[in-house]
């Protein structure tokens, strides 16, 4: 796999435009899923994933060939998604506390207005719900959780992608997991 990827990259660097399509095909699902789990909305995830590949192409000379290509590519995708969320802040108002309600947010209110009858929760709805709860995590916990549980990456790889020490990755996973537990415990 690594040798194959390196061969393709060498071709791309020599100006073989079409060889890049092979790289896109190899990694599009993983890149798309990272973006999707970070931003939730499929159309936005698709745009971000495409942008990640375009950036990888235009910066292909900066990629160090002896490092893992997927790490470099996932890093671009993660950073783009997090930047996007930072600029957009879609649920900022949901997280804002309602004055005088002591920790009660719009989100908890919305959630409580939509009862989830346990026996009617379809698989699809469970997925939607879990995805929404992930989206409510602060971005730094969310990226660590997505890379660990959805991409199944090692702590070392996550540390390379996020450019933070392994110990910090661990802390973020532990805290993100605790935050999710509190949201997901009542199935």
């Amino acid at each position: 796999m690594d040798q194959k990827v390196k061969k393709i990259i060498t071709k791309v660097r020599k100006g073989d435009h079409q060889a890049f399509a092979e790289l896109v095909n190899l990694y599009k699902t993983q890149v798309y899923n990272i973006c999707l789990r970070l931003v939730r909305i499929p159309q936005e995830a698709e745009d971000l994933a495409q942008e990640a590949f375009i950036r990888a192409y235009t910066n292909i000379d900066k990629y160090e060939i002896d490092r893992k290509f997927s790490t470099w590519l996932f890093r671009i995708a993660t950073n783009l998604s997090i930047d996007y969320l930072r600029k957009k802040k879609p649920s900022a108002y949901l997280d804002a506390e309602i004055p005088g309600t002591d920790g009660f947010t719009m989100y908890t209110q919305l959630a409580s207005e939509e009862p989830l009858p346990e026996d009617l929760v379809l698989e699809y709805e469970t997925q939607e719900w879990v995805q929404r709860e992930i989206e409510e995590l602060p971005a730094k916990y969310r990226s660590a959780i997505v890379l660990k549980y959805i991409q199944d990456l090692s702590l070392k790889e996550i540390s390379d992608i996020l450019d933070i020490p392994v110990a910090t990755v661990k802390t973020r996973i532990h805290r993100g997991r605790e935050a999710l537990r509190k949201r997901l415990r009542h199935v």
Binding site: F20, K28, A45, Y57, I150
Partner: peptide
Amino acid sequence: QTESLVKGLETKEPSEGFTQAVMAKLP
């Protein structure tokens, strides 16, 4: 349970025209 719920999120496929769309947008 939290771990299994998060791991249980399905891998979704990007749109069919994804690769062509990227290639068309390259410099």
